[in-house]
Simulated assay, not measured.
Amino acid sequence: MNMTKYVSTNIYLMMTLFVCAISYIYVVNGLKCHAVLGVCSIGIEGVISHSVYVVLLSMCKEGMTRHKTSARKPVVSEDLGKKPMPLRTEEQEVLPVQEIDAIETNRQAAITQCKEYIRKVVAQYFPEKLMPQLLHLVDEYANGIISCTPIMIAINDTKGLRPIDFYHLIWILWTRLNTLDRRVSCRFIKNAFPMILENTNEETIYRKMNDTYVKCTIENIPKDEPLIT
């Protein structure tokens, strides 16, 4: 590359001197101008020749660069001595049929237990006509229906219940059925009893639906204890 540039530079100088000499002779002898104008013509020709030289040199460099780029062999995994990594697909764990049946059996048993608790303990504080709706509430929670069928009853129409009793009720459903998460369960109980919990926010329910025992009408029964003794 350096030798090529050296040769091309010498050729450029020789051609420039030749053109400048011809220009000087033409201006002084051919046009009968003063020698000063002949010297000026030499400078002009030198500038023009240098500009042409720079342009041609740049074009040559660009052409050589493109040629090298196109001739370069693409890098593939074999060149690096590595084989392409196969795509990994995570295998989904498939539960045995017996285990699925056991889970469903336990779920149905929990639903039955919660309904029995509603029938024997909770329903006695409500008008008798609301029994089907109270039992249906368990089914809706078990199926994760957040926008459940509301039970339109005021707190004064119950037999001495307070809002905290409903916090305990949703705690019992949440710990036994485990269908909705704790915070969504707060929304569920508000939807279930909109008149009673109208002025209670979800954060209050969230804080107070816990396993801390408080003496209430509907007691907060720990998960590992039976609902009905």
Rank of each mutant, 00 (worst) to 15 (best):
V47H: 05
L197V: 13
A35V: 11
V52M: 15
T105L: 07
K129L: 15
N191W: 03
H34W: 02
C186H: 05
I196A: 00
Y117R: 00
I221G: 00
T65V: 14
K82L: 15
A110H: 04
M59D: 13
I44T: 06
A21T: 11
L80H: 04
L95Y: 08
G144V: 07
F126D: 10
S23I: 04
T158H: 06
Y53W: 14
R176A: 04
I42L: 10
I145D: 03
E93K: 13
H136S: 12
K61T: 09
A142D: 07
S185H: 08
R183A: 14
R176Y: 04
H67V: 10
I100Y: 01
T112V: 08
P150D: 06
Y117W: 13
Y141P: 04
Q124M: 15
C114S: 07
D165L: 01
A35D: 05
S51T: 13
L87D: 09
S185Y: 11
D139H: 11
S23V: 10
H67Q: 12
Q108R: 10
I151Q: 02
G46P: 06
V7L: 06
M15E: 10
L177I: 12
I118R: 03
F126N: 10
K115M: 03
E91N: 14
T212Q: 08
K115I: 07
V27T: 09
A123W: 06
M209R: 00
I189G: 01
A109D: 09
T16G: 05
L17P: 01
L130S: 14
A123G: 04
T149M: 00
H136L: 15
K83C: 08
K68V: 08
T149E: 01
